[in-house]
Design a binder for these strands. Structure first.
Lengths: 229, 229
DNA sequence: CCAAAAGTGTTGGCATTACACCCATGA
DNA sequence: TCATGGGTGTAATGCCAACACTTTTGG
């Protein structure tokens, strides 16, 4: 998809009955991770000369024999080796000129993955975890896509315990709060946060304590399986 | 990785692009109207033999030179002769087998139109306004699409004065409440409804009264232009 | 005078916000 | 003993749901 300078090959041009099949369909995945109290997004260095030096989201053309959702799973699986992850369709971007070398309509998904997961292999130098925060450019309309997905994520975490995908199985309430603060990009009141989380009943108290912290250790929790997925 | 390497050779590029262009892109529009205290949807008799006798949403393939959003405007314009209407993208449906005669990925939009608008010409015998409520089948996965759009609409009307698209310019609070009840498929408390609407400040009191009603006439309102669109 | 809908306030419960002190641990 | 975060409750406020009577009009 990225290197599609051949989108207008003679072969395609003359097959005019394919008029309506001259739009390519792709998926782009906003893969969010969480590391060092920051929300990150997995980006890849663009291989298009139009976007030299810039990064883009992970995406690929959809194959004729796979569902749209499957395509986004495949992209994620190929890049991270993770399966069975949370993936959510958000919006489809279809401006005529959004791709410099041809017409590509792209459906955006976002996903949340645990950067420390042992299965997660970022074995490509062009791939990197980039902070979500801050002003920077991305190739194509990918900054729009990222922004749109982040908005959706912000709404989602209020209602659903999706952030479990970002954390290790055991975590303290402070860690959980820090994830929320990173996603919302805003500080939260500790007592009110704990009250709200308690009310939602998402967590199971493990009766274990944090270890190796240079202060009073906190209790550890995990997500109640019945609310996740 | 997979994509990068496959994109490196021109030969592969050509063949795989031909492959990838075998997915067609379409839009489907859920056009909602309101009539006789009921929410309706504009449907067309399917011309596919697989769906003989069934109705489907209005949709069309996206042209290579039009934005996705433009395509949905065009479909609406062609069918209703209305322009400048509210249209909202909701979700993209991309299951491999959703269309019996080929691979078609379709982006769903919904729209709200005033069935009594003088410009609205349903000049086709195969077109009809069908009640949204009730169990019935539609061609393709259009029942899913309709349900998804209805859910989104239900959320939307709580926050935005979009229902103005369904009503005449002047209306009573009763009429407005009936529209909400039709969309939500639930009765609402009159006093609470009026309180909520008043709080939102969407309406302008016209200092006019209903006429030709067999009971005490209500005041007439219109939407404050600054909140619509 | 009857039927139909207009118009109008109050109360209780529940969620949300703001806010401060003592405690346990490691260095 | 200090620094760091853990753990906890209350009061004020705003939002929401439930609920009933009087008024106006047309027939």
């Amino acid at each position: 998809m990225r290197k599609s300078s051949s989108l207008k090959t003679a072969a395609l041009e003359k097959s005019s009955h394919l008029e309506y099949f001259r739009i390519a369909v792709s998926v782009d995945c906003v893969i969010f991770g969480y590391e060092e109290k920051e929300l990150k997004v997995l980006l890849i260095k663009s291989d298009l000369k139009e976007f030299a030096g810039m990064y883009s989201l992970l995406g690929d053309l959809v194959r004729p024999d796979e569902d749209l959702d499957e395509a986004s799973y495949r992209v994620l699986k190929e890049r991270t080796d993770l399966d069975d992850v949370f993936l959510q369709q958000v919006h489809t971007f279809g401006a005529v000129n959004r791709h410099p070398s041809g017409r590509v309509v792209s459906t955006a998904y976002y996903s949340l993955v645990n950067i420390n997961n042992h299965k997660l292999k970022i074995n490509n130098n062009d791939l990197r975890w980039h902070p979500v925060k801050g002003a920077y450019k991305l190739a194509f309309d990918h900054k729009d896509i990222l922004t749109t997905c982040l908005q959706h994520l912000r709404g989602r975490i209020e209602e659903h315990p999706v952030v479990h995908n970002l954390l290790n199985e055991k975590f303290s309430l402070r860690e959980l709060q820090e994830v929320y603060e990173a996603i919302l990009n805003a500080p939260l009141d500790r007592r009110n946060f704990r009250k709200k989380i308690t009310l939602k009943n998402w967590l199971v108290d493990l009766n274990e304590m944090e270890d190796n912290v240079p202060h009073r250790p906190g209790k550890l929790y995990k997500f109640n399986k019945k609310y996740i997925r």
